[in-house]
Design a protein around this nucleic acid. Sequence first.
DNA 1: ACACGAAAACTTGCATACTAGTCAACAAGA
DNA 2: TCTTGTTGACTAGTATGCAAGTTTTCGTGT
Lengths: 226, 226
Amino acid sequence: MASTETVDRITSTDRIFDELFARIVGLDLLPGTKISETDVAKSFGYSRQPVREAFTRLANLNLLLIRPQRATIVRPFSRDLIANARFVRAAIELEVVRTAAQSRNVAFDADLKASLRGQRDAIAAEDTKAFHDLDYDFHRLLCLSAGRPFAFEMIAANKAQVDRLCMLSLTSTEAMQTLYEDHDGLVQALFGQDAEAADRILRQHLNRLDPIIDAIYTTHKGYFEE
Amino acid sequence: MASTETVDRITSTDRIFDELFARIVGLDLLPGTKISETDVAKSFGYSRQPVREAFTRLANLNLLLIRPQRATIVRPFSRDLIANARFVRAAIELEVVRTAAQSRNVAFDADLKASLRGQRDAIAAEDTKAFHDLDYDFHRLLCLSAGRPFAFEMIAANKAQVDRLCMLSLTSTEAMQTLYEDHDGLVQALFGQDAEAADRILRQHLNRLDPIIDAIYTTHKGYFEE
DNA sequence: ACACGAAAACTTGCATACTAGTCAACAAGA
DNA sequence: TCTTGTTGACTAGTATGCAAGTTTTCGTGT
């Protein structure tokens, strides 16, 4: 999303955006929470202006809901928005792995293998935080391997919508193991230039969220819109 | 991009955004053109504030390049940005047509057929403008038919980057005929629930831009960055 | 004529004040 | 008790002024 050309210096808006983004995705700010430009400005020690611009960016990511002359709230979960975000993310990532499988670029093979090793270690240590970080990086590596770093920005933007929801679900060791096996199968498919297998495995991988999201919908209906 | 929930009233920012968007995509404002918040504010009769917010939105779409304390310019064409935009658009639309083919929804069949008829008429009348509009609508119909209206918003956002470039290329009757045949084949693949054929045809369809973009790169290098 | 430097004229980022609209609380009346 | 109307405390949208930095201009010195 950011300019790819100039080394934009970090502005107040950037700082506020980053901080709020982390708080929202980390569920530090729960869906439905009212959040006012004035209050945030005071707490950050800036004026309303940069806060306002950060709000606009977050609203574009569907993380805030700006209601003119009423209030701005942390956007509640929406099954529609989540479905859309997942569809787009899947579409992009599927094309990424097909590309990566068909036009092999061995430059990232070592990184992919290292990531898998790291994931195994995280599972052994039952370190869900580390696993989550490695998972993030793994999917980024897939994009790099396909020569489409930009694709990951799009994926990340859509992931955010789902990630904050999944914060509500504990990741078990078994779940991590399953995800790891998907990753491993995906890498093997890439190395074997088997685009069809990569497609199939990634679809299954991304669909594993279905029951999790459904479960959260029933247990945390209050965080959903309406 | 806009909120899907409330009927947001149209703000000054919206008006300025829409107008500038049309001017940029319509090449009324050429790539590289300097454009200042103050000047635009004066010409619209608003203050700098709404102009500034419209600028931010356009910059997010990679249509403006805001260079702090220097100037804001209409973003020059970038082969990287165009490649990225096309990749993302293709990824999403491919998944759209695969979905539309596999889980048929006949509700839009009549609209699709009507669009094809309209396209034939536009070609007969050599009306490129009408054809372009119908083409836009056709791809929107594909998304609707797949039950993914949101996907078209993403496609449109990425299309803008390419559309303004293609304004530099005249559309011949033969070219329109080729595009029509793609559309027709695509619809037949959908009706026949042949996801593989739909995938193949759409890839070919989207790749037809390759030589056009290359040609424009050589004939209008001045509009490209660096 | 040319190189150089200072200043003026720009630019966007940020701060602050004002406007118009929404909502909630509360008092008055039935 | 319940309904209703008014008031005041919020909200975001907009206008404007200042700060910091870049670019251009133009005059000066060689």
